[in-house]
Computed example of a mutant assay.
Amino acid sequence: MDLGKLGALHIRVLKNPGATVLSLVADALGGRFQGVPAPTRALIQAAAPSNCTALLRPLFNHPYALVPDCLAPPAAASDNSADAYVERLSDVRPDDLLTELEAEFPQHVPLAWQPVVSQPRAWARSYAHVMRSVWEAIRPTWHRHDSLFEREYERIGASTVNGTLDLALAQLGPRFQLAGNSLRIPDRRPGSYRLDENRPLTLIPVASGVGASMFSHQGDTVDWIAYPLSSLAPAGEREERTRDKDRDPLALVLGEPRAAVLRALRRPLTMGELSSLLQCSPGTTTHHCSRLEAAGLLNRNRQGQHVRIALTDRGNELVGLLV
C-alpha cells in the first residue's frame, strides 16, 4: 500500500471491538491464523453455536478470507460498539449482500457461497448470532484491556510528535512490513493499494493474537487496517502497570519489550546475555531484535559461536532523545 509522504500522513487510531470479534472468530472458528492464545480459542469455541463451522465456511474456506463489506465491522469513530455491530448484522439487507457477492464473483458464485445466496437473510441472522455469542464471551476481557488501548493511542500519537512514525508503522505486527513509503499488508491476493488523499490512515488495534491482520478496501483504496495490540499482555502476565511505565516515552513509541531491549544495549551484548538480562526466552528476544533491526535501530553480528547485538547510531539517537 502506497502511504505517500510519511511526514504528511495523518493517522487516527480507533477502538473497535467488532474488529477484535472478527479476528477471534476467523482464528478460533474459521481456521485463519491470527495467533490467538489457546485458552482464548477454547473459550470462543465453547461459546459459539454448534453449527457455526459450516456456517462460516464461505467466509474463510478460500486461499484468502473474504468478508463482504456489509458484514465487516464499520470503521466510523461514532460506531465503535460491538453491540451496535452485531445488531447491524441482524439487519443486513439481502440485496446488499447478494450485490457484493455478484461483484466479487462476476462469472459464478462458488459452491461454498450457495447457502448464503439461497437464504441470505437467514444466513446473515445466523452469522450475527455467532458474532453475538463470541462478543458476550470475550466482553469482560475486552473491557479489562482499556488501559492497553489508551497506551496504544499514546504510542502512535507520540511517534507522530517525535518524528518516529516510520518506526511505529514498521512494528504494527510480524505480518506487516514497511519499506520506504510502502506498507506490505498480508494478503494472498496480489494487488496495489493506496490511501484516499482526503482521508487519514485508520488503524484499529485488536485484542486478538500476535498474528492478527485484517484490512478493508474499496477498489484500490484502503479504508482501515487492523493489527495486533502491541502492548497486549500475554496470558498470566499482570495487566496492571505503574503510572511511570505507562508514561515512558520510549515504551510509548516501541512498546515495553522493545524499549527494554534498547535500554539493555547500553553496551553490546550476546543474544544469551540479552535474553538473561530481560528474563525472556531466546525466541522472544530474537523476535523483538529482528523487528528492531528491520527498523534500523540495532545490528546483529555473529562472532564465533555467539551473535553480538549493538545499537546503531539511529538507535542511540532514539534512546538519547526519549530516555
Rank of each mutant, 00 (worst) to 15 (best):
D96L: 01
L97V: 05
L97I: 03
L97R: 01
L98F: 04
T99A: 15
T99Y: 00
T99N: 08
L101P: 02
L101W: 04
L101R: 04
E102V: 07
E102L: 04
A103D: 09
E104T: 12
F105W: 11
F105Q: 02
P106G: 11
P106H: 06
Q107G: 07
Q107C: 08
Q107H: 12
V109P: 00
V109E: 03
P110G: 10
L111T: 14
A112M: 05
A112Q: 07
W113K: 02
Q114V: 05
Q114T: 07
P115Y: 03
V116T: 09
V116D: 06
V117T: 13
V117Q: 06
S118N: 10
Q119T: 12
Q119N: 13
P120T: 13
P120D: 10
A122V: 13
W123S: 08
A124C: 10
R125H: 10
S126Y: 03
Y127M: 02
Y127K: 00
A128H: 05
A128N: 07
V130H: 02
V130G: 07
M131D: 05
M131V: 12
R132K: 13
S133H: 03
S133K: 04
V134L: 07
V134F: 05
W135F: 09
W135Y: 09
E136S: 14
A137N: 03
A137H: 01
A137M: 03
I138K: 08
R139A: 15
P140Q: 07
P140Y: 05
T141E: 14
T141C: 07
W142T: 05
W142D: 04
H143D: 13
H143S: 15
H143K: 10
H143V: 11
H143W: 10
R144M: 04
R144W: 00
H145T: 08
H145P: 00
H145W: 06
D146L: 05
D146G: 11
S147H: 10
S147Y: 00
L148R: 13
L148P: 01
L148S: 15
F149Y: 10
F149N: 01
E150G: 15
R151F: 12
R151S: 14
R151E: 11
R151T: 14
E152H: 14
Y153I: 09
Y153N: 13
Y153F: 14
Y153R: 12
E154A: 15
E154N: 06
E154H: 04
R155N: 13
R155D: 09
I156D: 02
I156H: 06
I156G: 09
G157T: 02
A158R: 10
A158W: 01
A158T: 10
